[in-house]
Design a protein around this nucleic acid. Structure first.
Lengths: 140, 140
DNA sequence: CACGCCTGTAACTATAATGATCACAACTTA
DNA sequence: TAAGTTGTGATCATTATAGTTACAGGCGTG
């Protein structure tokens, strides 16, 4: 469970909120669908709330989507639940500045890694939660 | 240090091997440039060896590139040092099969996540270690 | 208004990945 | 043979994540 499944859980939560729109589903109900603990759901809903994707109110069940479902991209969801600096790849610290490779490797790799990450993010930005929900309801 | 910097270290190692081609650099020398422990370097060289990117011999210093530097892509390097199943994003286990969302979320997200990962990998596949080395030596 | 339900959070635990380090067997070469 | 090197197992510290308990505070219905 060290792998980061928050992205997937967040997409799951948003799908449920959309499909049950109007109703009032509790974190306990959502947790039952995700198969996890209600607190985990509330934590992720908190991140989605901070990111402006949903609106929640303390004490009242049933968060609402803060935006039309077709205006929430997977990139929005991904970024909402990434607390770190958002870098997909890490670069080792303090390479030897007395070595030409050590001196320049960080800048060089940062450029390359950024390109790769942006390609991934462009793809995520091209998919919306509406498509995800449609795909879900069109399956048996 | 939980972030995975093996990809960056592997690129660093390959750059050193190319730039010092013909010479015999030890894992200790490489570790000095990377700023880590020689054992860490040897382990990563072992993965590069298994992936067919370098050739090493027990007891003898100075691994050699197993392929021309311009035929080693960053995707090759990335894959060489990813021991896991290679998935960029994790999906939570055992969602509730009695719920339409829980029943289908895994397949749906797997499709979307695969698309994003493939976009990233295509970008990595478009960059070679030759370009990385050129960029390094062209810097002060 | 009182009670019950729900959210938001802090605190703690368990698990896993990673990197650093020590130790040592096996191999190469001078 | 001796020195140096690789390959690898074992251990430890650090960190991220998820699961869980506990509880303060908000909300709404009776």
């Amino acid at each position: 469970m060290a792998a980061n499944s928050r992205f997937a859980v967040a997409a799951h939560v948003l799908s449920l909120l959309h499909i049950h729109e109007g109703g009032r589903i509790t974190s306990e109900y959502i947790a039952g669908s995700v198969n996890t603990n209600p607190v985990v759901v509330r934590r992720i809903m908190g991140m989605l709330n901070k990111a402006g994707l949903v609106q929640t109110s303390p004490g009242v069940a049933g968060a609402t989507l803060a935006r039309p479902i077709d205006e929430i991209t997977l990139l929005d969801v991904y970024r909402a639940v990434q607390p770190e600096d958002g870098s997909l790849f890490a670069i080792h610290d303090n390479p030897n500045p007395d070595c030409r490779v050590g001196r320049n490797i960080q800048v060089t790799l940062d450029t390359a890694f950024t390109r790769a990450q942006q390609a991934m993010e462009r793809e995520l930005a091209g998919m919306t939660m509406e498509e995800v929900c449609l795909d879900i309801v069109n399956r048996p």
